[in-house]
């Protein structure tokens, strides 16, 4: 079931088309990766969802209704370009932003204190923002984004400026939010984190959507017939054993064990190769290597740009 849907959304700026008939649909309780090179139109799209700008054409649906200003309180947005008022105290500032999202004062105070405890920044409540490290300021912004329990969360490069420990903390929270019913849009250039958290992705390049779907499905669709083998006591070098139409991508020898990656022709069947190899050594491992999101991203974008 879809929670959010955009149909043929276009946005024209003075000298360029920022979005060209982009349609995407977000299943409920999914983490949806919005990917694309710099300047592809992701930020414009996110701003349209936040009703900061309006699309020229196209329709947007939010939880079964046409997107309207009422929905703003149900959306949480962590922009890529984010900051805080430097001269304000951390607690006051968090209270201010929480109340702007419509949380009553007393409730906001209680919830903020809980989250500050959880993220271990409660000691900073009375300090000025300019005294905070970048990572701590990011934590405050993250808390304020999710405090009003939005149904739709939009994170634009949420992990920039965090150390690995805090990246993990945030990832867990994002997964928690999803499990508790939120739908998440996750925009980033960090493909490793996309692999870790996203269920669905859309790839936007040059104002157009060029790929969308379930991430596992996309990987399957883009499989390259690549496999990794590991054999013990292999009698010959892999490259001497392999037929001409199979290319050897990498090879590694350790003691008596040899492991290597091969790409079969598109019509090729790994069974034949496996049985052939088994005659020359003791098969310890065989698996299909699916393309990484990074590879798919680069391939799709370069293909289109050529």
């Amino acid at each position: 079931m879809e929670f959010f849907k955009a149909e043929n959304v276009s946005k024209q700026y003075q000298n360029h088309l920022a979005l060209d008939k982009v349609s995407i649909s977000l299943p409920k309780q999914s983490i949806y990766g919005l990917l694309g090179p710099n300047g592809a139109g992701k930020t414009t799209f996110i701003r349209i969802i936040n009703q900061i700008t309006a699309p020229d054409t196209g329709e947007i649906w939010f939880d079964g209704e046409k997107l309207n200003p009422k929905h703003i309180s149900r959306i949480g947005y962590l922009p890529e370009e984010r900051g805080l008022y430097k001269k304000m105290k951390v607690g006051e500032q968090a209270m201010y932003l929480a109340q702007l999202k419509g949380i009553p004062r007393t409730l906001a105070a209680k919830k903020l204190k809980d989250w500050f405890e959880k993220f271990d920044i409660i000691d900073w409540w009375g300090k000025k923002v300019e005294e905070l490290s970048k990572g701590m300021a990011q934590k405050v912004q993250f808390i304020v984004t999710i405090l009003h329990k939005p149904d739709l969360l939009i994170f634009d490069e949420p992990f920039s400026g965090f150390d690995p420990i805090n990246v993990n903390l945030l990832k867990e929270e994002i997964l928690n939010l999803r499990n508790n019913g939120s739908t998440v849009i996750f925009s980033t250039h960090n493909m490793a984190s996309v692999e870790e958290v996203c269920d669905h992705i859309a790839l936007i390049n040059k104002s157009k959507k060029i790929l969308e779907g379930n991430m596992k499905q996309i990987k399957m669709d883009n499989r390259t017939n690549t496999y990794r083998f590991a054999l013990r006591n292999l009698s010959q070098q892999p490259k001497e054993l392999l037929p001409a139409d199979i290319s050897l991508l990498s090879e590694e020898v350790e003691d008596d064990s040899t492991s290597f990656t091969v790409r079969l022709p598109l019509s090729g069947n790994p069974n034949e190769l496996t049985s052939m190899l088994m005659k020359h050594g003791e098969l310890t491992m065989m698996e299909e290597v699916l393309p990484t999101m990074n590879e798919i991203f680069i391939r799709k974008v370069t293909e289109m740009n050529q």
Binding site: N50, I52, I72, I75, Y77, L78, P79, E81, R82, G83, L84, Y85, K86, L97, L100, K101, G102, Q141, V144
Partner: peptide
């Protein structure tokens, strides 16, 4: 200008109209 250079403005206008 302060709001703009602090980059807080986008956080705020996701809650209120500019």
């Amino acid at each position: 200008i302060e709001e703009k250079t602090n980059r807080i403005v986008e956080i705020i206008i996701s809650s209120v109209k500019p």
